[in-house]
Each structure stands twice: as C-alpha cells, then as structure tokens.
C-alpha cells in the first residue's frame, strides 16, 4: 500500500481537500469520503454510467478515474444539479415525464444529460439516444427518458429566449 496523498479539487463549487490512497477511485472518494452518495456504483468498470460526473466540463465515469487524477479539477455531481431548493429543467422533466422507475441510474443519466444539453441545446431523438448510450437503464425501456431529455431541452430553450 503506497502512502496516502493529499488531493484538492472543487465539487459543486466547493473547494475540498482529501487524503486518499492512490488506488482509490474518484467514485469511492466521492461516496465514502465526501458522502456524496448520489453518484451510484453499478459495475465499477465503466459499462453502466451510473457513476457519471462532470469533470472540467466533460462527463466521465467516476469509477474509471482515480481520485488523484482529479487534482485541481472542477467537478459537478448530481448533488450540484439543482439550484438551491429548485430543481433544474432536466430534473423537473424527469419527474413530470415519469422518466424513472427504481431511480438508481437516474443521477448518472441526469448528469450525462446536463453535459449533452451543454454541447447540444436542441438534440434530436437520435442525438439523445447516441449520447446516452453509455448510461444503462433496466427499468424504463428508455422511452420516457428520451422524451424527458427533449422536453427539458425545449423548456431550457424557451427560458433562454425569454
């Protein structure tokens, strides 16, 4: 076991400093050290997308990022999506559109959607399906998820044009 390292990064706007082993994943540190358990673990090998967070503007599967690699990074997790006590458009659209059942994949999918809408504010159905293809959901069959993403995009565009 190698010596622990101090790692400093920003999570949802807050600067944090943690002591971690080099073998610890970003996912483990977020969940076990920072108690940000909204980021979920489904497979630990980057296949399911449940642990998706945004790192320096890019969506990453945090199970495949070592915590030490996050030195100096700016991270956004599901806990940083809502604005205070107000849900953002994506979260609201998921609730209104019944786009979740068990909810375990939901944080990862919402975070991935935030990244999508940042890149492409007006995605087609195909765009959405392609961008979310790395986020597995076993409950919904994806229909209501795709619709919710498009509804959120539309709402955000309307809000932006007002």
């Amino acid at each position: 076991m190698s010596a622990k390292r101090v790692v400093t990064f920003t999570v949802n706007g807050d600067q944090v400093e943690i002591l971690c082993e080099p073998r610890q994943s970003l996912l483990e540190v977020l969940r076990d050290d920072l108690d940000l358990t909204g980021t979920k673990e489904g497979c630990s090998n980057g296949n399911c997308g449940a642990c998706t967070v945004i790192m320096d503007g890019r969506p990453v599967v945090s199970c495949l990022v070592l915590a030490v690699e996050a030195e100096g990074a700016e991270l956004r997790t599901i806990e940083g999506v809502a604005c205070g006590s107000t849900l953002d458009e994506v979260q609201a659209a998921f609730l209104e559109g019944a786009a979740l059942q068990c909810g375990i994949c939901t944080p990862g999918i919402i975070v991935q959607t935030e990244a999508l809408l940042e890149e492409n504010p007006n995605p087609t159905e195909d765009d959405v399906r392609f961008y979310l293809a790395g986020n597995l959901c076993r409950c919904t069959g994806y229909d209501k998820i795709v619709r919710a993403v498009q509804a959120a995009a539309e709402k955000r565009q309307v809000a932006a044009s007002n």
Binding site: R31, L36, T37, G38, T39, K40, E41, T77, I78, E79, V81, A82, L87, Q91, F94, L95, L100, G103, I104, T106, P107, I110
Partner: peptide, 14 residues
C-alpha cells in the same frame, strides 16, 4: 421523486 432526481434517496450501498 425529488429525492430520486437530486441524489438524496438512500439505496443499500449508500
């Protein structure tokens, strides 16, 4: 719903 879209809901591993 609110707990499940904000990451607040506690699952077993949490």
């Amino acid at each position: 719903g609110a707990d499940k879209v904000t990451g607040r809901a506690r699952y077993g591993a949490d």
